[in-house]
């Protein structure tokens, strides 16, 4: 399964780290591809303010997410009323599944696509607000443990992906993008690196497709493995944060295990995201040397700041305010619940932006490299986390 390619097809002309609602209209209308990647011309709401254009899709996100919550509650209530022991399937999975059904059957209506694209915005809002549930000391302690694991994971992921990519004779820049995507934070890292190493759109599409396909699979596989190994919430969350590449999928895979595991997955993944600038800078310098253009990156500090995920700062600030005792217990509960609602929209967006039929169009060799590489990385990080579990005890 892959996320629909609308983001990829517009990569050359947009800042993909900016929500679609804030982008300038790009390209000629007939060249804009829809979220299904079908190439059909999409109706464009000319004249409507950006915030109006995102309303239908945001409502769709909320409806799908809320349907997932209702499904969980209804099944639980039915089981209790009829004294049945039904499996407790979390709203997270329902929201993703409902989104998948919509996306892969009737498709996301064109009028809703800009709003659906805001799922990443809601993810980041949710992460910042989640800071209220972490004391700064815990962030430092767990962040340090995570950072050590992240450093090892970065080395392993880059080595594994590079070796596999060369074995399968993938283009060098595609290997770089797959390495960056699997070592740091999936789509954001690939998009950030694409410009830095001047990779082709096609290579970026392949790399994003492979990373997101595996992210979708991880939603179903990781919780099963976590339960099979009887992992603690903290250890599982750390593992997911290290091994699942895209932040939305990592958050969902963590929440599918437990609420606490979801929090730790976000913390570990956020730590990993914070390294994005260093890895992209390394690859940018490498490709600048390969192209023999001398110094390809002028001001390295400015480059690192530009690539640094700023929402991490928001997360740390909110955590610091909570640690300072600024919030009452009721306010903490309110902010934590707002974070959950933001994540609910994110989980719906994960399903709505995932299209099974796109898989065949992306080619199999990058996917094979992605699958084998991610499996190796998942096993190595699992061993690493089980070894690091002592740090939590």
């Amino acid at each position: 399964m892959v996320t629909q390619m609308s983001t990829v097809t517009t990569l050359p002309v947009i800042d993909a780290r900016r929500p679609s609602t804030l982008r300038e209209p790009q390209g000629r209308p007939e060249h804009r591809r829809g979220a299904t990647g079908s190439g059909r011309p999409q109706p464009v709401e000319r004249g409507a303010p950006p915030w109006v254009q995102i309303v239908p899709g945001t409502i769709l996100l909320a409806a799908v997410g809320f349907a997932g919550k209702i499904a969980e509650q209804s099944i639980g209530a039915y089981g209790r009323a009829h004294q049945l022991t039904l499996p407790n399937i979390e709203y997270v999975l329902w929201a993703i599944v409902f989104g998948l059904i919509v996306s892969n059957t009737v498709g996301v209506p064109a009028v809703c696509r800009k709003g659906v694209d805001t799922y990443e915005f809601w993810l980041k809002v949710g992460i910042v607000l989640l800071g209220v549930r972490f004391l700064l000391g815990d962030v430092v302690k767990l962040g340090t443990v995570s950072l050590v694991c992240v450093a090892l994971e970065l080395a392993v992921a880059i080595l594994v992906m590079t070796a596999l990519g060369r074995a399968f004779r993938l283009p060098p820049k595609l290997i770089s993008l797959l390495s960056i995507g699997s070592s740091i934070c999936g789509v954001s890292a690939i998009i950030a690196a694409k410009g830095a190493i001047e990779a082709d759109d096609e290579d970026a599409s392949y790399a994003i497709a492979a990373i997101l396909a595996l992210g979708a699979v991880s939603l179903f596989v990781f919780p099963v493995i976590g339960h099979a190994f009887a992992m603690s919430d903290q250890a599982y969350g750390l593992w997911v944060g290290l091994a699942v590449d895209n932040t939305a999928e990592a958050t969902a895979a963590g929440a599918l295990f437990s609420d606490t595991a979801g929090r730790f997955a976000v913390l570990a993944k956020t730590t990993r995201n914070a390294t994005i600038g260093f890895v992209v800078l390394g690859y940018a310098l490498h490709w600048a040397r390969v192209r023999a253009r001398g110094a390809g990156v002028g001001n390295k500090a400015a480059f690192l700041w530009e690539k640094f995920p700023k929402f991490v700062l928001g997360f740390v600030i909110v955590s610091a305010l909570a640690t300072a005792g600024l919030f009452t217990r009721g306010e903490v509960a309110d902010l934590a619940n707002l974070s959950r609602w933001a994540f609910l929209l994110t989980f719906a967006g994960v399903g709505l932006r995932t299209n099974v039929s796109e898989l065949a169009r992306q080619g199999w060799r990058p996917l094979i490299v992605g699958v084998v590489g991610e499996c190796v990385i998942a096993v190595i990080t699992l061993v690493m986390v089980l070894a690091a579990a002592r740090a939590f005890s």
């Binding site: 780290r17 804030l22 915005f121 809002v125 992460i127 909110v318 305010l321 306010e331 309110d334 707002l338």
Partner: peptide, 30 residues
Amino acid sequence: MRLSLDWWAVVAAGLAVVLVKSGIVSRIPW
């Protein structure tokens, strides 16, 4: 000046904190 997605998320979350802290928004259900 254009804000990136990350900064918009920080601004939105900051607004939520202000609204909750000021009591304008309270008792958020889940």
